[in-house]
């Protein structure tokens, strides 16, 4: 893992690229582990608290490893009024987890997002990179069964 981080650091040496470095790390590892933060801090001289400042400010970053599939439920305006919130609540209840947590079997990470840019198909969920539109609670259930 440290090798991956070092390599990324090599590629982004110019100033102002801390966010890019962290995005690259997350793209490679799926999250930003503590060891990576230490490494970045050591190599760039930016203090760990500053790095965590960035990591917590931007909602894109994860500090814990994600599950096998990432399930994003859209809670943008259109999805909200078309019933997205109910789907999110249902999944939380079904999985017994909260926003941004992973199921015990490590299969699903559940997160909410604010608009996936396909409001015309609301309500929308995204599993990894694939978008499913005009869904409801029972369609979601079937979809999840397919991934199991």
């Amino acid at each position: 893992m440290i090798e991956v981080v070092s390599e990324i650091l090599e590629n982004y040496k110019d100033s102002g690229s801390l966010i890019k470095i962290l995005q690259e790390i997350q793209n490679n590892l799926g999250y930003v582990p503590k060891e990576a933060v230490d490494e970045v801090s050591m190599k760039t001289g930016i203090s760990p608290s500053q790095i965590y400042g960035i990591l917590t400010f931007y909602s894109q970053f994860r500090l814990t490893p994600p599950g096998k599939y990432t399930l994003k439920v859209c809670l943008g305006t259109a999805c909200h009024i078309m019933g997205g919130h109910e789907i999110f609540e249902h999944l939380k209840r079904k999985f017994g987890i909260m926003d941004n947590e992973t199921t015990e079997d490590g299969l699903f990470t559940l997160t909410k997002v604010r608009c996936l840019g396909c409001c015309g198909m609301a309500p929308v969920i995204m599993v990894d990179d694939k978008i499913y539109g005009r869904i409801d609670i029972s369609k979601t259930e079937r979809l999840i069964d397919d991934f199991k």
Binding site: L75, G76, T77, A78, C115, G117, C119, G120
Partner: peptide, 12 residues
């Protein structure tokens, strides 16, 4: 950045 959570003009 298209932040309005209900808009997708720029994306398209």
């Amino acid at each position: 950045d298209e932040g309005d959570p209900g808009a997708f003009m720029d994306r398209s």
